[in-house]
Structures are given as C-alpha cells and as structure tokens.
Design a protein around this nucleic acid. Structure first.
Lengths: 279, 279
DNA sequence: GCATTTTGTGAGCACCGCTCTCTCTTGAGA
DNA sequence: TCTCAAGAGAGAGCGGTGCTCACAAAATGC
C-alpha cells in the first residue's frame, strides 16, 4: 500500500521540528530538508534586506545556483514561501517574548509585562521587514492558513500567562475602564473559556485591548508614523507598556517611584493641573 | 521670459484644489486634469478591489483604453501613482475624522473623542486596502515624501483639537499614568510647542500614545488579527476608545452609567475581585 | 535489476515596470 | 494668421517576474 503522496513532507516536518528522533530516513529526505532550509534562509535574507515586495523566487534560485523552476519542487508558489516566512517570523517574535517571560519569572507582574512587550518591540525594530510581514498589511491574498494561527498567538499567550500568574499569586487588581458592554463581555467570556478560565472576564477584555495597543505602538514606530513625532522611542514604548500593564490591572514593582502599597493614587503626572479624578 | 518647466503642474494642482477660481487656462490643462483624475479613479478602484500589490499601471491603462506608456506622462512611476493614492487616502480618512469632530462640536469631550476615533475606524473597515496602504507596511521604498505628512496628520490633529477644546473649557483632567520619563517629556514638550502650546505636557504624551493605540486596534481588526478572537468589533472598539479617552483625561459624558461628577471612582468592573487599587 | 518516484533543467507563456522613438495635436508668440 | 516648440499618445522593446510543462538524471523500493 503506497503512502499518501505528501507523506514525506510530514516526515520532513516532523524531523525538522523534533530533531533527529526518528530513523534517518535516507539521503533524499535529508537533502530535501537541507535545500528547503537553504531556500528559506536565502529568502529570509532577501526579505530582511529588501522587503517582502522585492523578494523574488527567481532571485532566490539564482543566489542558490539552481534553476528557478526547481524551487517549485519545494514551495508550490511564492505565497507558500511567504507563508513559511510568516510562520518563522511569528515563531521568532514569539520565542523572544517567551524568553523574556521566562527570564522574569520571579519579577513583579507589571515588570514581566513590560519585559515581554519590550522583547517583542525590540525584535520588531531589529527585523522591520519581517515584522511588516506579520503585523503589516496581509500580503498573500487574505489567506490565514491554519498553520499560522498557533505561531501567531505565541506573544499573546505569553502576555496571558503573565496576567494569569499575577492573578494566581494575588497580584492582579481589577482592570481599569467601565463595565463591559454585553457583546464585549460575551467575546471575553468565550475567550476566557478557551485560554484562561481562571481569569476574570474583565481582565481578559482588558488584556485583548492592551495586546492590540502594544502592537499599535510598535507598528507606528516601525512603519514610520512616529517620524518627527516621537524621537525617544524606547522610553516612550516603556512608558506606554507600563501604562497598559496598569490598565490590565497588573501590580507594579515595589521599586517604583512611589513606595505606597496602593501606589496608584499618587501617580498623577506632576506639574499639571491636578483634578478631582482618581484616574 | 519662459515660465519654469513644471509650472503648468502647479497651475493644475491649484485649479484642482481650489476649483475654477483661476482663469480657465485652456483645453490642454483641462484635459490633463481630467485624465489625471480618471487614472487615479481607476487606480483607486483596482486598489479597493485587489489591493496595492495587484495594482498595475498596465491594467489601469488598459481599462482606460490608452497605451500603458501614455500613463507615464501623468505619473513618472508606479510609486508616484501609489503616493498620490496614499495622499488621497490620508485625506479621505482625515475628512471623515474632521467631519465627526465638527458634528460633535457641543458634545462632551470624551464623546467627541470616541466619535472621531469611530469615524476613522469605520472608514478603515469600509476601505481596508486603502487603509492598509497608509497604516500597513510602507510599500514604496521607505519614502515618505513631504507631500504626505500634512494629509497624514489630519486625524491626529482632529484628536488634538478635541483635547485642546476640552482643556480650554476646563474639561480635561490629568492624564492617567506615571510621571513622564525625561526623554518622553522632552519629546512631548517639543510637540506641544509645535501643535498645542496650551496643553499640558503630560496630556500631549498621553495623546500620542492613545493615537497610536487607537490605530493599533483598528489595524488588528482590519488586518485580521482579531479573527477568532474578537467578534463584536464595533462594541469592542467603542469600549477601547472610551478607555483611551479616559486615559488622556477627557471628561466623559454626563449621560454615562454613573451620574457622579467625579465618575471614575465608581467605574471598577463589576463582578471581579475588588482590590485596593484606585485604578 | 528494474520500474517508480523524486529532483533538476531549460524553454516558454503571460504579465509587469519602464524607456525610447515616432507621430500627431495643440497653443502661444511673431 | 502662420510657425514651431512643446505636450500627448502609440507602439516596440528590454529586462524582470511568477508559473507551467516536457524532458533528463538520480535515488528509491520491490
């Protein structure tokens, strides 16, 4: 009984993802994996250098010394190659976010939040074209293959875990903002059931908003909207990330400028007309 | 004395922008204006239908029944045509934002803020490809010509005016958040001097952050990041815009669910563990 | 050892942005 | 009113692209 026509692909994927755990199937599979990796590597190089628009299959093949048509044995179309790069980019930014999450395991929740956001932002600044590929205009025609959704959610899930850990250790206050509108509450409830049943609904809603807002700031920086507006991008981002942490309800570090155990009330910006507003 | 070689272009621009106020220069200029408009119209049609990547000069020319080479008499390159579309898109989203600003002239500051944000968001949802052109990955090679910066700032300036009006009428509280870091304060101070000398520095900083965050949410919605995450996009956006208004310090409408003159303290989300945090 | 599958090649198609040369029309100045 | 430079359009063409197809070589499985 012949195997399914594409079974070797799954073998290769399994091997690539799990390392040499299975039997080493043969020189052919091995070569295929290596060539696939070389194609992606060169494509990623061109992507980083010139952007997704300038990336061309022919040029990748030329640089690799092979006929352009041979490349189609590995990626059925340019969009498929781009999709592979998209997945890699999601994995890369997800990895640095998770690393920051792990590195700050015992830090204050707000500091962990800021660290994860900062890691994602730093990766974006260092890889603007790859960032544009995943958080800019979707370039392959509105296709979000199922393969991309898991890598795409890694950063968000890291943020969720930070909030969840804070909640578990009693360091999650109520999020800012008004009571949720009913449809928003419904969405947040559904989400909570999926990814964080222990978290309050309002925290989930605030988390989703903060997630989008973090990437709003990153995108504005990477895409040039801050030109001639914000020059100190790093400090500005940290400030915004800290504000978003507070918005979600994360307790800031005790080392903050205010030593109070209920640090918020003293946090009004100095020098401005003080008002009667608690926040 | 011969006129500058490109003077007719300025004439055309002036005529197009100001209407038939100058002398009607002649059939040639008139034809040029009409053809230029037709090209942009067809290009915008293809942009809306297929996206910026699929937009091609040849196809525009084909649809207009002219040789593709003739098109270069009007736009020196594809990037120039795209730049023109970018300017138009910035103007379009800026116009709806300004309209919302004008329509809510006597409303509460927070409601005005929400209206302006909502107008921009609605336009983006209705024109996703044009939105992607201006707030997605920058597609012409990192060129932000001077012509684009004025139209690009229209939405932001509408938001600034909302905040400034609120400040002028005593309805701007201190923004949320910690004291500003020094570099952020410097940026905000420079910005304040340029666009709103009357506003407190902290309000400017909060405004810039909120501006980026609003578009973060819009981009996540338009670019599909909310797929399978947020379904009630409209209510979610309104909720987030309201929270951002509060973050900037805008006084909410008296008709809100809390009738207090200092409405914030009662705004903790219900049903969640109440904490000692004021915000 | 042989049939089958897989991989690589080169030609070729249709399309793209852009340039160049050519013709025709237009309109301003003598 | 006539002239002639300048503008506008057409068409061919160059180098590039994504992609397909028929064909040859190599590895694999029986």
């Amino acid at each position: 009984m012949a195997r399914a026509p594409l079974s070797f692909l799954f073998d290769a994927l399994e091997l690539w993802q799990n390392g040499p755990m299975s039997v080493i199937k043969g020189a052919r599979e091995r070569a295929r994996i290596e060539v696939t990796a070389a194609i992606k590597e060169e494509a990623r190089r061109q992507l980083a250098a010139e952007g997704a628009v300038r990336l061309s299959l022919r040029s990748v093949a030329r640089e690799l010394g092979m006929a352009s048509s041979a490349l189609y044995r590995y990626f059925p179309s340019r969009d498929d190659l781009l999709t592979a790069l998209i997945i890699d980019a999601y994995d890369a930014i997800g990895a640095v976010a998770e690393q920051a999450e792990a590195d700050t395991e015992h830090a204050a929740p707000a500091d962990r939040w800021i660290a994860v956001c900062r890691a994602a932002r730093d990766w974006a600044v260092r890889h603007p074209h790859e960032y544009a590929l995943i958080y800019g205009s979707p370039v392959p025609g509105y296709s979000a293959p199922q393969d991309t959704v898991t890598p795409a959610s890694r950063v968000a899930l890291a943020l969720v875990r930070v909030v969840r850990d804070a909640h578990r250790t009693g360091r999650l206050g109520p999020p800012q903002g008004r009571p949720l509108a009913a449809p928003v509450r419904a969405d947040a409830g559904r989400l909570a059931a999926e990814i964080a049943p222990d978290l309050p609904i309002a925290a989930i809603a605030a988390l989703v908003a903060a997630w989008a807002q973090v990437f709003g700031i990153v995108s504005f920086e990477v895409f040039g909207q801050f030109n001639r507006v914000v020059e100190a991008r790093g400090p500005f981002f940290d400030q915004s990330a800290a504000a978003l942490a507070a918005q979600v309800g994360l307790v800031p570090s005790a080392a903050a400028d205010t030593g109070s155990a209920t640090p918020r009330s003293a946090d009004a910006a100095p020098g401005d007309t003080p008002g009667p507003y608690c926040r």
